[in-house]
Design a protein around this nucleic acid. Structure first.
Lengths: 337, 337
DNA sequence: AATAGGTGTGTAAACGATTACAAATATCAC
DNA sequence: GTGATATTTGTAATCGTTTACACACCTATT
């Protein structure tokens, strides 16, 4: 394995010059630059990252701590983050905290050990509660989850409003007894519940919100349970893609072919929501954009540590499908007034 | 930030002793061990990874290079790999090669730079073609993709046999004109095509295999195209979950409610295959087990570099659902002979 | 011609751990 | 009590870079 010394010898220059060429330093003559470059070629030299990091006290790594890598939302976010990061010659360490605050803390420590330049994090409620950017030696951008009180760079959906629009859409189409299933570990679930409750209240309807751990199995169980009770609801509303999947499975189990007598709508425009007849109405999140905004925010923050804290809010898009077909006017004909 | 020197001073021992305690070295007296441990506590000391790696020329990192992180197969594999790796105090660097041989090579170089202990790789055909373990300074375990000629540790499905069973099942249930859609970038797609072709031939039927890039959009387009031609096939067979999704979307677009006149079956028991009526017959891969086997194989190889090359082959499970209902006897009644 | 101010280049000191080796101490047999 | 041996502990070299600083050289100004 060739070292920087060998390159220096081969190019008949000092190690400092080699290092300067490597760093793209401006004050180095074209002659030397060329000699070094060919020497590097000839020897197939690759700098030792460990030595470099030790001496320079810097890495080109950023950390991405997601709460569940199996959630398609986070795989898409990861994808966006990696795409942009690699364009900027930054490496990404991806960690999976499993909706577990302890693991989150563990990984944040790991990030410190790794000397990362910054972190993108989708925090649990617990972590978010006492969250202060200043507790960490690197900048942090929150993604998907953030509340009003937290002072930190963040990229989130307009959760309250999206849930409000989704619920209002349901109500206007004649679904009035709507049950909301939401994840308890995230701020996002709570905010969406809030939007749901506001919409219900605005129409003089009673809220029924069911908190649960945001995984498919628990959502299925909760929905199954609810479908056993009477009176049946008009609609089940899911606060995330995973919960939506669980609910849909429960409906299928119960042989209920939505939209009648019970229908289902929710968050996240996953491919299969179009596939199951007659299609599920959802709020589509611009997931890739969320991820991209997060990494761009982080890169800016790294470049300018002192810039003002920013919060990017992206709008969810209501996609109407068969599961929210108008019950008031099921024939689709215009009723005479 | 406290250094090892500070700890040594605080504990009134030498830096060597501190280092030995940190490494869990056996020859260190209980007295010193305790003094060091409390000093570490008091100072909140955390060793500098860069320095440690530079001096010891070792990391506790393994690399995982997958071909598409958005493919649920690979997210599940990642999950398994990370779970087991972290239990063994190993970090994982996850990279996404995007079915691109150049990116694969790039990431393998990156792995070398990072001095990883080993790599798990799902190679493209191009990379697999000239693959020699000895070209790399670390052990490599192939996952999901490997051909007969490649000499390397590997964990794969019984692709040929699974495809054979799936196709035979179709034929026996009365579907005879079956078209196989498979990804061209992976050895897996080819092997499954082989099993399909063998089953067709065994029943005196003609093969129709359509190669395509293994992404949803291309599969949808290919299926759409095929559905336009006449005569219509009896069944479309997908060699992967993403292709299955594309085909199912095309069927929906064309308003074809499988199993009649055209049905669909394929690989990967994704949650939605149960959901779309009347359910899609699939080969279920034991994905988590595949990932776990891969990381365990790698850890063993790291521990014993000279052990014999191993190939672990896991069996796919045929899950029969509505999409392969028996056409010979559609009523389900026993026909009098 | 002497001085000042740039350039560009080289030398050597970091960076913070691990670890070979030497030194000190403990253990034991006689 | 002595020497031999085994066991801990400490000192200092080392890993491969980056970078502060010094130095040599060149140009421009007086």
């Amino acid at each position: 394995m060739a070292h920087i010394k060998d390159v220096a010898k081969q190019a008949e220059v000092s190690v400092a010059s080699v290092s300067r060429v490597l760093a793209g330093h401006p004050k180095v003559s074209e002659t030397i630059r060329q000699r070094v470059l060919t020497a590097i070629q000839e020897l197939g030299y690759r700098p030792d990252l460990a030595a470099r990091r030790l001496r320079s006290r810097q890495t080109n790594t950023i950390g991405l701590i997601v709460s569940d890598i199996r959630n398609p939302f986070f795989t898409e976010v990861s994808r966006a983050v990696e795409d942009v990061a690699y364009q900027h010659h930054m490496r990404v360490i991806l960690c999976n905290a499993d909706e577990d605050a302890e693991k989150e803390a563990l990984y944040l420590d790991l990030m410190r050990d790794e000397n990362v330049r910054g972190v993108i994090l989708s925090p649990t409620l617990v972590t978010l509660a006492g969250f202060h950017t200043s507790d960490y030696p690197f900048p942090i951008v929150l993604v998907d989850r953030c509340d009003q009180n937290t002072i930190a760079d963040a990229v989130v959906l307009d959760n309250v409003d999206s849930a409000y629009r989704l619920t209002t859409h349901l109500i206007e189409n004649g679904y009035r007894r709507n049950v909301f299933f939401y994840g308890t570990t995230s701020a996002t679930g709570r905010q969406r519940r809030e939007g749901y409750a506001a919409a219900m209240a605005a129409h003089g309807l009673e809220s029924h919100a069911e908190p649960l751990p945001a995984i498919v199995e628990r959502a299925r169980a909760a929905a199954r349970e609810r479908l056993r009770r009477r009176p049946l609801p008009d609609a089940l509303v899911a606060s995330s893609g995973l919960i939506l999947l669980g609910i849909t499975e429960a409906l299928r189990e119960a042989q209920i072919h939505f939209p009648d007598p019970v229908t289902v709508v929710g968050f996240d425009d996953l491919p299969w929501t179009r596939l199951v007849e007659p299609g599920i109405t959802v709020i589509a999140q611009p997931i890739y954009d969320i991820g991209r905004a997060a990494i761009e925010l982080l890169l800016q923050r790294i470049a300018k540590p002192e810039q003002a804290v920013r919060r990017v809010v992206l709008r969810g898009q209501l996609i109407e499908r068969g599961s929210s077909v108008n019950r008031n006017n099921p024939t689709g004909l215009v009723t005479a007034a």
